[in-house]
Amino acid sequence: MSTALRKVMFKAGLTTLILIVAASPGLCQQTLRKKIDSLFMIASSAELKVRDQVEPAKDSIAALGVDAVPILVGKLGTKSARDRWTVIQILKKIGSPAVPHLVKTLKNPDALIVQRVCWALGDIGDSAAVDPLIAVTSHSKWQVREQALGALGDIGSERASEAVVSGFDDEVGQVRKAAVVSSGEIGVSVAISRLVHMLGDEFYGARLSAIDALLKMDTSEVTIIVADSLTSANSLVGDLGCTVLGRIGGDRALEILVGEAQGGDPSRRAHALLAIIEADPLDNCGYRETIVSDETDRFVLLKINSAIYSVTHAGKETQE
C-alpha cells in the first residue's frame, strides 16, 4: 500500500470517527426517544390486553431519569387526556430532578403546556418551584392561573401566601377555587375573613371548598368571624357558616347555632339544626328536645329526624 493511499485512508477514517463522535449525542437522543416512545405507547394505553404492563412501562421511563424529562415535556401538548395523565405521572415518579427543566418550561408560549407543567410541579412538590409558579399566577389564561395556584397549595410553602390570597379576587370561579383550596393547604391565617366571605361565592367549587379551608385554620378565630358574618345579605354565607360551626363544634359554636336555629328562615334553621346535631351527636348539651319541639316546618323536621337517624346509626348500613 502506497504512503499516499495510507494518508488518504487515515484521513477518511479520521473524518468518519469525528463524524460519529459529533453525531453520537443526536444518535443517543434518537435512541432514547425511540425507547421512550415505545414504552410510552404501553404506559398510556387503555387497552385491556396490556393493562398489566402499564405501570411497569411508566416505571421504566421514570428510571431513565432526568434525560427523559425534555422528551416527556415534549408530549405535554398532546390532545389525549390519557397521554397527558401518563406524562404527569411519570414526571412525578422522576421527582425533584425533573424540576429545573420543568421550571424553564413555565416560560413556554403555549399556555396548554404551561398549565400542565404547573400540575406536574405541584405533584412533585419541590419548593424550588415556588417562585417560578408565583410568577405565572397572573398568567393571561385562567387555566394556568388555576393550576399554578393549585400547585402552590400542593407544595405548601408560606412564601406563596400573598399570591394565593390575591387569587380570591380572580374573575374566574375555578381560579378562586384553587386559591381557596391552596390557602387551606398552606394555612394562610390572614385569609380567614376572606375565606368566610368566600362561603357566599357564586362558584360552588370555591364556596364549598372554603368550608374545608376554614377548618384547617385557627378554629376559634374562624368561629368569631363566622359569627359576625351570619347576618350577611348573602344567605349562603350564613347557611354554610352554620355548617362550618357544626364541624368546629364546642360550646361557643353551639351557642351561636342555637340562636340561628330559632330564626325565621326555615333554610337557616335547617342548616343550624343539622350543624348542632353534627357538633353534638349524642345531645350531651340537651338542645335537641327544645329545638325539635319548637320546629313546625315538616321538611326541617324531616331533615332533623334524618340527621339524628344518621348519627345514631353511624357506621351501620343505611339500608331499609
Binding site: L302, K303, S306, A307, Y309, Q319, E320
Partner: peptide
C-alpha cells in the same frame, strides 16, 4: 324501598 344508600322519608 332502598337497597344501598337512602331510606323512605329521609335526607342523607
Amino acid at each position: 324501598q332502598y337497597h344501598g344508600n337512602g331510606k323512605n322519608d329521609h335526607y342523607w
